[in-house]
Amino acid sequence: MDVDLKIENLSVYFGQKQILDSISFEIPARSITAIIGPSGCGKSTFVRTINRMNDRFDDFSHKGSIIFDGKDVLSNDYPVEELRKKIGMVFQKPNPFPKSIYENVVFGLKIHGVKDRKILDETVKSSLESASLYDQVKDRLSMNAYKLSGGQQQRLCIARALAIKPEILLLDEPTSAIDPLATKQIEEVLEQISKEITILIVTHNIQQAARIADYIAFFYMGKLVEFSKAEKILNAPNEKLTDDYLTGMYG
């Protein structure tokens, strides 16, 4: 099993409040790892810590490390822009820019200095294809992205993240704001791209985890209760806490 990210004893604090408590596990490469757990268990904070989205909060602090390519991404020496080039993110609410579909997809490339029109065009096509959006929008790439439906917007955000060829894609409850049909399409997209990219998805939906995840991490009150292959967690969890959550005792 290839390991892509190694979480070592990670604790996260906002001010005095501890959000994550000594999390340690290894995220396998080119597979889908789902993070599940009740609201407020720290799952969103966890993924946002990986690509350092939490840096902008003044009261954020951490202990422990996240090792990626042999380096600790949380150390101040690691350039955050480089990190985000390799670890992309899709958010809970679709957040396209109020620009054309084309400009949305090439945004990251342009930021990273790609100007060659041919490369941009090709990337737009391949990224939109990976997000299975290309056929629906190929004739109107110059249309404002705001005119797309919610599900299409979210797939555009996935395409936008894929355009800079990340090695890992983080998704923070990406389907919680869109309808079931669009959810299904996004799940298919994720399964498809997980052949090449490591996917870490936060979900409050156990069925979703069951449908797409290869591995599941169960968080509870800021602690990692259990991490294992998806079938193992879903059918025969080691911890009673996990079992209670899965059977709907709380959450």
Binding site: E81, M89, F91, N95, P96, I111
Partner: peptide, 14 residues
């Protein structure tokens, strides 16, 4: 929109 700001930053924009 903080969502759009985060969207840009997550793509590596400073």
């Amino acid at each position: 929109s903080p969502e759009q700001k985060e969207g840009a930053q997550a793509l590596g924009a400073n």
